[in-house]
Design a protein around this nucleic acid. Structure first.
Length: 492
RNA sequence: CGGGGUGUGGCGCAGUUGGUAGCGCAUCUGGUUUGGGACCAGAGGGUCGCAUGUUCGAGUCAUGUCACCCCGACCA
């Protein structure tokens, strides 16, 4: 195993990439822009998946599954939507291969051309709304609150592990409602679910807010977002929730008969988070020694490394370790005893740190004699020797402390890198140094675009929590009046 | 699609004016080790991205081609 990980301070992108690879989360696939998620990485994704799934069900949602392929004609029904995704679609044109008549290998059978091309879903609004049409006729059929866990394909020009891959895993919720108010409430509920998940499970402080019109989802009337700050000060959009109005209902002619007996178009939302959250986890908490996983999502919360010179010593240590393991498991924690006999303890310490395991226990002859165990915490890289008595309870508490500490650290970092800015020259300089700047904005697309062209910075959101700042002021760019500051940053 | 770069054992790389393909890591065997990434000894593994050309002779030179990476435009 390669040992050196690039220093975070030297080259943040390379550090990130190194970490994803060396912590055994993923690797680049032979297929352009695609990624192999390795078992350890997938286990983290599964933790996220399970937790989110529970939260969705608690808010009344059900899982369903819709097809991977979308007929081209469906896709083009909603004008803005198709404009938003047209440039990055994978298209299926044929359904058969044949032997190459001129030699080796196979070619696409020209006789097997599809009458209508199929688009590999980049998102599923269109296929789902074409289905919902058949499900909805009366107000009694509403609301429909469905989610699907799926893969989608977006043929991006440039890709990065987890943050932007040609194919990625995600969940997409698609709901149908009788009223605009109810749909808007749904979009808000779900963005708050995401914020709660980010904060409480990923230990990731996020700002909840509305996207500016420029940054909205193609086909949405309003897009709500959670925005996180990475350790280089760049913003990462970690999840979105869209109020789609009646756009898709109209495109797919989904109407219902209301209580007054009148026909009305259905109101819609959609919301999603993806394996990009894995990238957020790496970038928000990792350090020069590797990954730092929040205990609530770590596939292994406690790893134990036995230290021994003989089989007798090993067996004695393992006996104690198994006792602790049983106690910890009874408290609901996942524990691994690293019994690999070909590796020395020092190597194992470094490796589990690289993989971000929150708590490490080491025990050897010395501890056996004294009735102690060495407890190391990943977040602070500290260790102390503790009595075996009450150790499980202590670790249970420690895991909670670590979860909180990781969040607090990230929060402190973020808050120390957010500031108000009212001067355009100052803005241009400061925004490049990795800051979130709270600025007044005149509300126009033109201004937002001009700022983006000049600095690459975009409006990450118009915040509704964390850093709301409603006050009179003048737009940082145009000088026109503004009533609220918005969050500007350079983003991933 | 523009600008730059790289293709050599599993991974990371070196390879001079063209002359028997090398190093580190990893792997395998044996031994000593084991409280922060062990050490010694030995072993296995490569048609040098592909094609054509120049040459007695090409990893090296020429032409072509393919792939990948980085920087832009596009995006969760």
């Amino acid at each position: 195993m390669a040992k050196e990980v690039t220093k975070r301070s030297e080259n943040y992108s390379q550090w990130y990439n190194d970490l994803a690879l060396k912590a055994d989360l993923a690797e680049q696939s032979a297929v352009r822009g695609c990624m192999v998620i390795k078992p350890y990485g997938y286990a983290i994704w599964e933790s996220m998946h399970e937790t989110l799934d529970k939260m969705f069900k608690q808010t009344g949602h059900q899982n369903a599954y819709f097809p991977l392929f979308i007929p081209k004609s469906f896709f083009s029904r909603e004008a803005e939507h198709v404009a938003g995704f047209a440039k990055e679609c994978a298209v299926v044109t044929h359904h058969r291969l044949m032997n190459d008549p001129d030699g080796k290998g196979v070619i696409v059978d020209p006789d097997a051309k599809l009458e209508e091309e199929l688009i590999v879903r980049p998102t599923s609004e269109t296929i789902i709304w074409s289905t919902y049409k058949n499900w909805i006729t009366s107000w009694r059929d509403l609301p429909i609150l469905c989610n699907q866990w799926a893969n989608v394909v977006r043929w991006e020009m440039r890709t990065r592990l987890f943050l932007r891959t040609a194919e990625f895993l995600w969940q997409e919720g698609h709901t149908a409602h009788a009223t605009a108010e109810e749909a808007q409430q749904e979009a808000m509920t779900m963005v708050q679910v995401y914020a709660k998940f980010a904060r409480e499970y990923m230990a990731l402080p996020v700002i909840v807010g509305h996207k500016s019109p420029n940054e909205r989802f193609a086909g949405a009337l309003d897009t709500l977002t959670i925005e996180a700050m990475m350790q280089d000060g760049k913003a990462l959009q970690a999840g979105t929730s869209h109020f789609l109005g009646q756009n898709f209902a109209k495109s797919f002619d989904v109407q219902f008969t209301n209580k007054e007996g009148k026909q009305e178009y259905v109101w819609a939302t959609s919301w999603g988070v993806s394996t990009r959250l894995m990238g957020a986890l790496i970038m928000a908490h990792g350090d020069d020694n590797g990954l730092v996983l929040p205990p609530k999502l770590a596939p292994i919360q406690v790893v134990m490394v036995p230290i021994y010179r003989s089989d007798e010593e090993l067996n004695a240590v393992l006996e104690k370790m198994n006792e602790i393991k049983t106690q910890l498991e009874a408290l609901g924690h996942s524990v691994k005893i690293d019994t690999r006999d070909t590796l020395r303890p020092g190597f194992k310490f470094a490796e589990w740190e690289l993989k971000g395991v929150p708590v490490r226990l080491a025990m050897g002859a010395r501890d056996l004699a004294a009735g102690t165990v060495e407890v190391a915490r990943r977040d602070e890289l500290t260790k102390e020797t503790m009595p075996l008595e009450g150790i499980a309870q202590h670790i249970d508490t420690l895991l909670g402390d670590i979860q909180q500490n990781i969040y607090n650290k990230a929060l402190r970092f973020r808050d120390s890198n957010i500031e108000k800015c009212d001067d355009w020259e100052e803005f241009k300089t400061k925004i490049q140094t990795g800051k979130f700047l709270l600025c007044h904005w005149d509300g126009t697309v033109e201004t937002e675009q001009a700022i983006k062209d000049a600095t690459k910075a975009t409006i990450r959101c118009i915040p509704i929590d964390s850093c709301v700042c409603e006050e009179e002021g003048k737009c940082i760019y145009s000088g026109k009046p503004s009533k609220q500051r918005v969050v500007f940053a350079i983003s991933y």
